[in-house]
Design a protein around this nucleic acid. Sequence first.
DNA 1: GTTAGTGCAAACCTTTTGCAGCTCT
DNA 2: AGAGCTGCAAAAGGTTTGCACTAAC
Lengths: 175, 175
Amino acid sequence: MAPDSIKGSLREKGVRLTRQRELLLGLIDKSGEHLDAERLFQLAKAQDPKLNRVTVYRTLKLLKQGGLVDELDLMHYGGDQHYYETRMKQEHAHVICLRCGKVEEFFGEPLQRLRRQIESHFGFHILLARTEVGGYCSHCQSLRAREMEQAAREPDAQHALAEPDGHRSRAKRPA
Amino acid sequence: MAPDSIKGSLREKGVRLTRQRELLLGLIDKSGEHLDAERLFQLAKAQDPKLNRVTVYRTLKLLKQGGLVDELDLMHYGGDQHYYETRMKQEHAHVICLRCGKVEEFFGEPLQRLRRQIESHFGFHILLARTEVGGYCSHCQSLRAREMEQAAREPDAQHALAEPDGHRSRAKRPA
DNA sequence: GTTAGTGCAAACCTTTTGCAGCTCT
DNA sequence: AGAGCTGCAAAAGGTTTGCACTAAC
């Protein structure tokens, strides 16, 4: 969703467009990555040093409630925080490599089909949907294969193989 | 996954089957609901008052890492905690009513199709997958329709319509 | 001029960690 | 016996809340 149409949606609801919100909206929309609240805060603070972390949380909540952004957790790769993206283009699934952290987006017909089937099967009215998938990307599959070989060759060494734990321990954010 | 096969899987990895783990495993498996850590702790404490909350978290982490249970968040209906279920039967999607909180499970072909397509499209190796959907169940759709009518008829009253916020404020757990 | 929004500090909930002592195998 | 677990206390991470002040409409 383009920032302009977001602004429109907000104005309609009598929500004020403050300097801080304009800034945050712009950052969320421009950023290619999936930002979490803290990262968004850091980026915003770089442009407006007085902006407070709390404002970030409040703005995200507002946008979420308005259905203007979607909340993800990317299979908790990187910790328990949430990630945000504007509700642009079509519905898509997020595909996260548990080894390198790369995130791919999958568009495509099975998603629409799934949505339709759920709606008709339960007579359900879907407002939010989210598919997240974790595993190994093609690149990391070969790396892992090589590591396993290595490990087999030197059975004594303490190889700290990058194992997926599906829930990396608390992300120490770089200071 | 039946508790016995879970125990087997654990034993193979040299994981000890303590009294506490047996208890927790049993509770997770028997419970029809999706339990969060705190609820599981309360149930366990009822049977073993000395059991500590930390043990619940450690056990859940263990099971998660072993791929024996899946972690859900049910669209954060009810707060930010995680819910757990044994990895039984087939892959399924969770369908959460944002008004009444009911959770349905959807099995069915589009899920397998989606999985296959993602694997082949990206050459990805999927280990974990999760589809969660939020909206209104058929029952709540009619209730909501009635509420809207009501609101239209008495335009002055402050109707606290049950709006979905997609992220209910912090769950005050009943003491 | 109102009312909504901001910043600040402090709380809150959920989850993890360090460590001494206990217990499965 | 000894690695692995548990309980306890304390901390950490992420997010929300109360309140006085400020700014958008």
